[in-house]
Design a protein around this nucleic acid. Structure first.
Lengths: 103, 103
DNA sequence: TAATCGCTTTCCATCTTGGAAAGTGAAGGA
DNA sequence: TCCTTCACTTTCCAAGATGGAAAGCGATTA
């Protein structure tokens, strides 16, 4: 059987939440991601920086109502990595399918 | 939408590997788990202890060929927790389905 | 009695994750 | 112009997770 490789950059729960939002939208506001993940400003900022560093996310700053806003979106690489991660999870679930079917 | 709750005790990659093996078998030998996870004796021992502590795993010691062997198996609670974790992952994958379908 | 096997425990280093608080640049008000 | 606010960002720090090496330990063999 082929080994199931999980993406360390996307594996942490908060990262998964961020990625799931980004996968379902073209972009998401910083404040919305903060609400969804439930972490502090600083922590979200660091997660996003890490994803940018990994080449998975792009941050766009633009003014809305005269105030600065930060939008996050997947890069092509990020979207691909997330898709691969989801496939890995799917394979993981599949490999345990019969086992949990008995429950 | 209902929040997707991941089990922290099963979330770490090495734990997932151990759990997947246990889910597919009645029990597994210490040495086999060590090979599959690729971690050292001490690390595997600690992971198993943590799972025992969580009430998810039972360790059985018995002699084989005159030498001590340790077998690990899921408790009923462990099997249930793993099944729930797999369902959570399945839900996570499903929530991103359309998004990754485009890839 | 000594050595080996099969873990377990201790010790230690590193990485990750988190919050609080201070810092920064842009925009708005006095 | 100076001060404040907003929306993050960075720094500082604490706690927990994870990993290996090495020592420990009980049960066999030699």
């Amino acid at each position: 059987m082929t080994p199931i490789v999980l993406d360390a950059q996307l594996h942490a729960p908060a990262r998964l939440q961020i990625a799931t939002v980004l996968a379902n939208a073209d972009s998401a506001e910083f404040s919305r991601l903060r609400e969804i993940t439930g972490v502090s400003d600083s922590v979200l900022s660091k997660h996003l920086s890490a994803l940018v560093e990994a080449g998975y996310v792009r941050l766009t700053k633009s003014a809305l109502d005269g105030r600065q806003r930060t939008w996050a979106s997947f890069t092509r690489a990020g979207r691909k990595a997330f898709a691969a991660h989801m496939r890995a999870l799917q394979a993981l679930v599949a490999s345990a399918e019969q086992a949990i079917a008995a429950e």
